[in-house]
């Protein structure tokens, strides 16, 4: 699971309405896997990100203490920053671990890089 996907995952347990995003990440095994940097698709992705959630996650994972809390258009022209954003979103993989909802404590396991968001009967 790349950190990009994490930005799209929210707890969907019945009645869990607050503190359900972003999910806290328990990292048992992670990896940086290089892949091709493509600027235009990355630029198109930015409006779809929840930047605040991304900043919180990056800080919590100690991936980059200087990661900006707010997005500004000037960042798009900062080549070094865009490469760093690519590294965070596209190259940082959580292979084993879990996603934990801070609102209801539901634990979503991550196995072989695949997050499992399936709920039990009672939770639907």
């Amino acid at each position: 699971m790349r950190l990009l996907s994490h930005n799209l995952l929210q707890c969907n347990v019945k009645n869990c309405k607050s503190n359900n995003f972003p999910l806290k990440i328990q990292v048992d095994k992670s990896n940086i896997i290089n892949c091709e940097f493509r600027k235009e698709p990355l630029v198109k992705l930015i409006p779809k990100l929840d930047w605040n959630a991304l900043a919180i996650t990056v800080h919590n994972l100690a991936k980059n203490k200087e990661f900006p809390e707010k997005f500004s258009p000037a960042l798009l022209d900062d080549q070094k920053f865009m490469q760093e954003l690519h590294r965070i979103l596209m190259e940082t993989h959580i292979i084993e671990g879990a996603l934990i909802c801070e609102g209801c404590n539901k634990r979503y396991p991550i196995k072989n890089g695949i997050p499992n968001m399936i709920l039990n009967d009672e939770e639907v």
């Binding site: 996907s5 995952l9 929210q10 969907n12 995003f21 890089g113 997050p115 499992n116 968001m117 709920l119």
Partner: peptide
């Protein structure tokens, strides 16, 4: 890849 039922957990975002 995400393991879920239709779009549960992804829908809101």
């Amino acid at each position: 890849c995400v393991n879920t039922d239709v779009a549960e957990g992804l829908y809101n975002r």
